[in-house]
């Protein structure tokens, strides 16, 4: 069984701060990590490898040169192969263009049974790339996958809903997007780290390798544009209540009563 996992390197948004003077995002010194949902997706793929003998897991990313570190991490966790799409042509793409480039690379790779993506990347936050890859490849998709079983080419999938989940029957080839519940990502092993440098290879593919027109990827190909961006306005100063606990709570109740909120 051939499994592809789409992985993205993202800034660890938990630690991204706003520059109070310039009002811009401070990205210097912010560590880059494997997107959390993608780590769950990779875990879903590696769990298949644990269970069945014939599973090959390839991780695929599109991104700048430093994304290589993340690919090594994926290899050290247990992925078999890694492909790195890299080139200026890809830069600045929206999800239309991003999914187009990734789908072209997958077509180039040939056969596959399951493609995993994360539900969403924590920087762009759109959750669009997975379904758009599936559409370009003409295969079916199930998003928000929290659990699945596979028997031959048939899958039984649990898809999370806001108030529960649905059980879906489907067949390969298919694209699944992973959420946290799919599985706690495993750690890298020492042997895994060693092998990721010595035994395994990262293939770097440039734009020319894909055999598509250069108006199909990157900023040029993107229907959407970021028109402007800004830092959200902090709310006006609130009131800190003072006094003993009894006084504070009583002041609060009075204030809410006077505003007719309770």
């Amino acid at each position: 069984m051939k499994v592809i996992v789409c992985v993205k390197q993202v800034p660890d948004t938990n630690e991204v701060k706003i520059d109070p003077v310039k009002g811009t995002l401070i990205r210097e010194g912010v560590p880059s990590i494997l997107n959390p949902d993608d780590a769950n997706a990779l875990e879903g793929a590696l769990a298949l490898k644990d269970k069945y003998d014939d599973v090959n897991v390839t991780v695929l990313t599109m991104g700048p040169p430093q994304a290589e570190d993340m690919l090594r991490e994926c290899l050290a966790m247990g992925a078999d192969d890694a492909i790195h799409l890299s080139g200026r042509e890809f830069a600045g793409g929206d999800t239309w263009a991003t999914s187009n480039a990734i789908a072209a690379a997958i077509n180039k790779m040939g056969d596959y049974d399951i493609i995993f993506a994360g539900r969403q990347a924590i920087d762009g936050d759109t959750a669009q790339v997975g379904p758009q890859i599936a559409e370009r490849l003409g295969i079916s998709q199930v998003t928000y996958v929290q659990n699945f079983e596979i028997d031959g080419n048939e899958l039984k999938i649990q898809r999370q809903l806001e108030d529960g989940y649905e059980v879906i029957n489907a067949k390969t080839p298919i694209l699944l997007t992973a959420i946290k519940e799919l599985g706690e990502p495993r750690y890298m092993t020492v042997k895994g780290i060693y092998d990721s440098f010595r035994e395994k290879e990262i293939k770097v593919w440039g734009f020319d390798h894909l055999g598509i027109e250069n108006d199909q990827v990157g900023l040029k190909a993107s229907p959407t544009r970021v028109h402007k961006s800004f830092v959200p306005q902090p709310k006006g100063q609130g009131v800190m209540l003072e006094g003993s606990v009894q006084e504070m709570t009583e002041k609060l109740v009075v204030a809410l009563k006077q505003k007719h909120l309770i």
Partner: peptide, 9 residues
């Protein structure tokens, strides 16, 4: 986007 750190139009 960016976990609510940035608003983009």
């Amino acid at each position: 986007a960016f976990g609510g750190n940035i608003m983009a139009t």
